[in-house]
């Protein structure tokens, strides 16, 4: 953890939700490296976080796509601090928070590159370890993509987030009049709060679901949502909402 904000906002009294209106009161601009920024999810996350008080460093192998993305973000948010960077290690070295917006299969390769500079930093795992036909997960029931990433980056603070939301939801975080919930899991209280800030900045309702092992449930939830989306033709705009009194 770096120079992070005091927790000036508090956890909601019920259900571990966070008060949106008080999100991210921190003055010191944090730098976020987004690895895999030009993918569907990476691009959606980058564009939505450009609204917040963050400096974004975008990395992806496709230079032309990256340039286009930076232009798109600057056109939508002229005051946003965003730039492309051609090395994932350099991006992570400058970052306070690292978002791995790469498929599960690519996590190991990225982890090997950034290990030395990811020490003690928040690394967000968004991946769902889906098999090729989307009818199951490639991880066994005793683990999750997030826990596997934590093993690859033992000195980083891995947090699960943004895995139960489709890319299209970022442009439309309110569906059918309801704000989509976005679940966050991890083992470090400060980091959970910091990532909940990001989730709120993106327009979702952050809910801390539990420790990192809860990622198994969260990844399974997205598998189910994908199966339902295909079965009932939700057109890839769908999300989870916990109803409660």
């Amino acid at each position: 953890m770096l120079f992070l904000a005091s927790r000036q906002w508090s956890r909601g009294k019920r259900h571990g939700t966070f008060a949106l209106s008080k999100a991210n009161k921190m003055k010191t601009k944090q730098t976020i490296a987004i690895i895999g920024a030009t993918g569907n999810m990476g691009s959606a996350i980058s564009q939505s976080l450009a609204k917040g008080n963050y400096r974004l460093l975008l990395h992806a192998p496709h230079e032309d796509k990256l340039t286009t993305l930076v232009h798109t973000i600057k056109a939508a948010h002229p005051s946003a601090e965003v730039e492309s960077i051609d090395c994932s290690k350099q991006a992570s070295w400058e970052a306070d928070i690292i978002i791995l917006a790469v498929p599960y299969a690519a996590e190991k390769e990225v982890a090997d590159k950034i290990r030395e500079v990811a020490n003690q930093k928040i690394v967000i795992s968004i991946a769902n370890p889906l098999n090729a036909t989307y009818n199951g997960l490639v991880t066994d029931a005793t683990t999750s993509a997030a826990e596997e990433l934590q093993k690859l980056l033992p000195n980083a603070t891995v947090i699960k987030a943004f895995n139960t939301t489709y890319a299209a939801d970022f442009a439309q975080p309110v569906i059918d009049g309801k704000q989509v919930d976005a679940f966050v899991a991890g083992n470090n209280e400060d980091a959970l709060q910091t990532v909940s800030d990001l989730v709120a900045t993106a327009g979702f309702n952050p809910i801390v679901a539990g420790d990192l092992s809860v990622s198994r449930t969260l990844e399974g939830m997205q598998l189910l949502l994908i199966q339902l989306t295909m079965k009932y033709n939700y057109n890839w705009v769908a999300g989870w909402k916990v109803l409660h009194n």
Binding site: M1, L2, F3, L4, A5, S6, M26, K27, T28, K29, R55, Q90, W93, E94, D96, E116, V117, N119, Q120, K121, P154, N155
Partner: peptide, 23 residues
């Protein structure tokens, strides 16, 4: 294992008054 490395560019803040200094 408890340390973290960070690059910061000229004129960037590491800390601004009013935030808690965490490092």
């Amino acid at each position: 294992s408890h340390l973290s490395v960070k690059k910061i560019r000229k004129k960037q803040y590491l800390l601004q008054e009013g935030d808690v200094c965490k490092s």
